[in-house]
């Protein structure tokens, strides 16, 4: 009975944390930092949230491919196309794993960039490991994206607009949580936290993309000329 109550309380506390990060991120982060945090929970959240997103995206892609196969089967017959159907599960597994890996990389890199900016440009007080833990919780608003992909799976045409709106809300919510995380962790003002959590990483990612793009395009054009 005692154990049952204990596990119930820990579930309730976990639910409170999840909701608190969305509704009162400043207070919830403060409380969490006071009590001390483990990296396990944010890591688990990232894996779950982005794993599910990847899986749902994979399922949607597979169902789209099935539509095309249905269409093609009218001309080619069903037998030759059945060979491809067995391999569709690989798509879902691939999107799930790649989503998780991408999310983990972005988590580590974004926290690193924000840490460098907040610590060395704005002379903040916090540590990278603490920011990394707080940044993990920024994955919570992506539950809206999950809801959006589920709706998209139900009806592509009716729910596409709602999907975009949910994605937009999730994006802004994530930015706010990242900002609060940096502000709380390094005790800097919100403007500096916004620059560290959003502007600097954005500039870094855009610059990196531009460099990679220019390398690829030069390789491609070079290859073509050769």
């Amino acid at each position: 009975m005692k154990n049952e109550n204990k596990s119930l309380t820990s579930i309730t506390r976990f639910l409170e944390r999840l909701g608190g990060i969305l509704l009162e991120p400043r207070k919830t982060f403060y409380d969490m930092m006071q009590k001390g945090m483990s990296v396990i929970e944010p890591l688990f959240l990232i894996i779950v949230f982005f794993g599910i997103q990847g899986a749902l995206f994979g399922v949607f892609t597979v169902r789209l491919l099935y539509s095309f196969l249905d269409f093609l089967s009218q001309f080619a017959g069903t037998e030759p196309l059945r060979i491809f159907q067995g391999s569709f599960i690989i798509i879902t597994i691939t999107t799930t794993i790649s989503w998780i890996i991408a999310a983990l990389l972005i988590w580590i890199i974004s926290a690193g960039i924000a840490h460098l900016s907040a610590k060395y440009i704005f002379k903040g007080l916090g540590s990278y490991s603490q920011l990394l833990k707080l940044y993990g919780y920024a994955s919570i608003p992506s539950s809206l994206v999950i809801l959006g992909i589920m709706l998209l799976n139900l009806n592509l045409f009716i729910f596409f607009g709602i999907f975009l709106i949910l994605c937009l809300i999730a994006f802004f919510w994530i930015v706010v949580i990242l900002l609060v995380a940096v502000e709380r962790c390094y005790l800097i003002d919100p403007g500096q936290a916004f620059i560290s959590s959003f502007i600097v990483p954005l500039v870094v990612y855009l610059t990196l993309s531009a460099i990679i793009w220019s390398i690829f395009s030069s390789l491609l054009s070079g290859g073509l000329f050769l």
Partner: peptide
């Protein structure tokens, strides 16, 4: 917060 967490 708990309700929101429950919804998530």
């Amino acid at each position: 917060n708990t309700i929101t967490g429950g919804i998530i």
